Every structure is written in structure tokens, then in C-alpha cells.
Amino acid sequence: MTKRHISLLVGVSAAALVGSGVAAAAPASFARTLLVHPGESIQKAVDSARPGDTVLVLSGTYRQSVRITTPGLTLRGMGRSTVLEPAAKATGDCGKRGNGICVAGTKSKRLMGVTVSRLRLTGYPRAGLVAVGADGLTVRHVTSEKNTVWGFAEERSEHSTYEGDTARDNGDAGLFLANTITAEQGAADSKETLISHNLLVGNRIGVTVRRLRDLTVAANEITGNCAGVFVVGDENKPKAGAVTVRDNRVVQNNKYCAKTERLPFLQGSGIVLTGAEKSEITDNTVAQNSGTSPLSGGIVLYKSFVGATSDNNLISGNALEGNAPADLVDQESAQRGNTFRDNSCAASRPAGLC
């Protein structure tokens, strides 16, 4: 990167410092903005950045992937006009793994305080953005679309915020959050991770929360997927749960998706809990999700294939209409402690839940 592409943002200008008799050298702790123009390498700018710096990517199409390992870095574009696509020949660890942006901490040290905003990520073989070992990650006003697996994915991360993003037409989940993506382990504490005010449309599943605790999914628009929201646990301890799903609009998730090794075919699932405990599903609008899958219905408590039960969950204050085979579906026994209260709905399985 040339000097003309780097702007220093400091609280006091160098000229003012000289005029006052203070040495003009800017402290290293002052944040900078590094500009990236079309045809330049975003990775080079990121590698040049210090903690607290911003890499600002101007409008244009950039056929590359980016790996972030600097704490406190902000990677920001100009909105949907800043587009990242796969390179013709992938380079670097992030690109070779098929991802667009990789926020990469380690098992021994989390990567703190990274922000990614105002970009469009499209067409990657794996995920538009993936975070591993992050703490305090913020992803805001990012569109991730037409990626083969996930729009956004993370594992072993805490205190994340996904806000105002769009995940569209991705092969698996628009947003996929897990303790680990591959290993079978007990649920991890996400420490108040927040998924809010996002648009999730045309994916296999809008939001998947797998083997996590202490997470909120709130005020999202979730439509046109095969399934809206999945909260998934298994037989490992600690159990998945303590998840809040509230104030979302989960409507017409009637796309058909073929079965996989883990799940039967999906179609017409609104909000599904399987193998989760002590979660609250409240004040959502769940309408016109219709299908014949074992997981179809408005709000579904589904007994998992590995025998993990859903226990002591609260389903309350939801407005349900036109879901099939029913607005509320509970496949657990009455002894599991799940509570259905004050929901507006017409039909349930078993009867009497509305």
C-alpha cells in the first residue's frame, strides 16, 4: 500500500502540535484509516493495520479473501457497492478454505473487538464470513449471499453481535453459531451473543444455534427459508439452552430442502427446539409455515435423533396463524416441564396447547 492510501485520524493535527511546541510525532496508539481502492489488496491493508485502525474498502468488486488477526480492527466498506467475491485462484488460508472473511483467534487466545461492516460477500464455496475464537465481534450491515454453505458462521466465540445484516440464498444456514462446528462437545456459554434486526431469506435454515447457551435471537425478519430458527442440542453436557428467541417475524418458510445425514427433509418449519432446555420463545409472529416434514409446524419441540429431550422451555405470548400441520407441535412427554402459555393460535399437536 502506498502512502497516499493511508490517512491518519488523530485528535490534534501535526501543525497544531508544532505550533504549540509539542513534538509533532503522532502517538502509535492514535487510530488510523487505511484506504483500499479497487484493484488493491485488502489483505495487505489489514496486515499493515494496528489495533484500533480502520481499513476502509471503497466501492468496487474485490476478488479475494481476507484473514483478520489484529484485535480492535474495523473492516468497513461503502455498503452493498463494496463487493467481495472468490478469487479465480484462492490464496491464503482463508481463501483456500473457501471463505470470504475469516476472523481468526486461537484456542489459547481469543481475538478481541473486531468489527466488520457495510460489505457484500457473495459466492464463496464455504462461508461469506466465519469467526473462530473471537470475543466481542460485531458484524453490522453486511450482506452475505449465495455462498455454498453459510452466510455467517462462528465457533468458540463470545459476546458477538450480528445486527442489521442480510443472509440470502445460502446453501445451509444464513447465520450458524456453534460451540464447535465439527466436534461433539457440551454446550458453550456464548456470553450474551446477540442476533438482532437481520433479514434471513432463501437459506436452508435462517438461524441455527447449535450447542450454545446464553444467546438471544431478537427482532429478525425470517422468511422464505426451508426452516426459520433451529435451537439444537444433543446428549452431551452441559446441555444446550438458556436461549431467548423473541419478537421475530417468522413467516412462510416453505422452501423445500432435501434430507441430510443429520436431518430429514425440511419444509414449513418456523421455530424448532430439539435437545434444548430452559429457553424462552416469546412474542414472536409465526405464520404460514406449512409442510409435511417431521419438523414442520409453527413452533415445534422435536425429539432429537440421539435421544436428547427438550426440557423446561417456555413458549409464551406468540402470535401463530396458518401453520401446518399445527401452530404448536410438542413431541415431548408431558413430564419434560415445557410450558405453553398465552399463545394466540388455532391448532396444536397434541390438542390443548393453544
Score class of each variant (00 low, 15 high):
residue 36 V to Q: 01
residue 5 H to L: 06
residue 267 Q to F: 03
residue 131 A to W: 09
residue 288 Q to S: 11
residue 238 P to M: 07
residue 7 S to F: 14
residue 15 A to F: 15
residue 129 L to T: 03
residue 284 N to G: 13
residue 140 R to I: 08
residue 117 S to K: 13
residue 154 E to D: 06
residue 237 K to A: 12
residue 33 T to F: 08
residue 158 E to H: 12
residue 331 Q to H: 12
residue 96 K to P: 00
residue 139 V to C: 02
residue 74 T to E: 10
residue 32 R to L: 04
residue 43 Q to N: 07
residue 314 L to I: 13
residue 159 H to C: 00
residue 92 G to M: 01
residue 154 E to L: 15
residue 1 M to I: 12
residue 84 L to G: 02
residue 137 L to A: 14
residue 58 L to H: 15
residue 106 T to K: 09
residue 183 A to C: 01
residue 222 I to H: 04
residue 262 R to L: 11
residue 110 R to P: 06
residue 68 I to M: 08
residue 83 V to M: 07
residue 327 D to H: 05
residue 150 W to H: 12
residue 45 A to N: 02
residue 310 S to D: 04
residue 302 Y to S: 00
residue 240 A to T: 09
residue 181 I to A: 10
residue 189 D to R: 08
residue 107 K to M: 12
residue 239 K to I: 10
residue 137 L to Y: 11
residue 336 R to G: 02
residue 1 M to E: 09
residue 261 E to R: 07
residue 103 V to C: 10
residue 241 G to Y: 03
residue 235 E to Y: 11
residue 211 R to Y: 06
residue 184 E to H: 14
residue 198 N to I: 09
residue 170 N to I: 09
residue 299 I to A: 05
residue 71 P to L: 01
residue 74 T to G: 08
residue 192 E to V: 05
residue 255 K to N: 07
residue 253 N to G: 07
residue 301 L to V: 14
residue 144 S to N: 04
residue 312 N to S: 15
residue 224 G to V: 07
residue 129 L to H: 06
residue 234 D to F: 02
residue 173 A to T: 04
residue 115 T to F: 13
residue 245 V to D: 02
residue 185 Q to H: 11
residue 152 F to I: 07
residue 283 D to A: 13
residue 250 V to L: 06
residue 317 G to L: 10
residue 170 N to L: 07
residue 173 A to D: 07
residue 169 D to R: 13
residue 172 D to K: 05
residue 29 S to F: 09
residue 67 R to E: 15
residue 20 S to P: 00
residue 216 T to D: 02
residue 335 Q to C: 09
residue 176 F to T: 00
residue 88 A to Y: 02
residue 292 T to M: 06
residue 109 K to W: 10
residue 133 G to D: 02
residue 142 V to I: 10
residue 69 T to N: 01
residue 210 R to N: 03
residue 209 V to L: 08
residue 247 D to Q: 14
residue 219 A to F: 09
residue 87 A to I: 06
residue 349 R to S: 13
residue 292 T to Q: 10
residue 105 G to Q: 01
residue 274 T to H: 03
residue 96 K to A: 15
residue 190 S to T: 14
residue 103 V to D: 08
residue 328 L to E: 02
residue 280 E to W: 08
residue 231 V to C: 05
residue 217 V to N: 01
residue 269 S to G: 14
residue 25 A to M: 07
residue 307 G to A: 07
residue 344 S to D: 11
residue 257 C to P: 00
residue 94 C to Q: 00
residue 280 E to V: 12
residue 214 D to M: 06
residue 257 C to N: 03
residue 49 A to I: 03
residue 225 N to V: 05
residue 28 A to R: 11
residue 349 R to F: 15
residue 89 K to N: 08
residue 125 P to M: 04
residue 148 T to N: 09
residue 46 V to K: 05
residue 53 D to A: 11
residue 231 V to N: 01
residue 323 N to Q: 09
residue 184 E to F: 14
residue 35 L to Y: 14
residue 53 D to S: 10
residue 120 R to D: 04
residue 289 N to D: 01
residue 141 H to G: 02
residue 328 L to C: 05
residue 239 K to G: 03
residue 155 E to M: 11
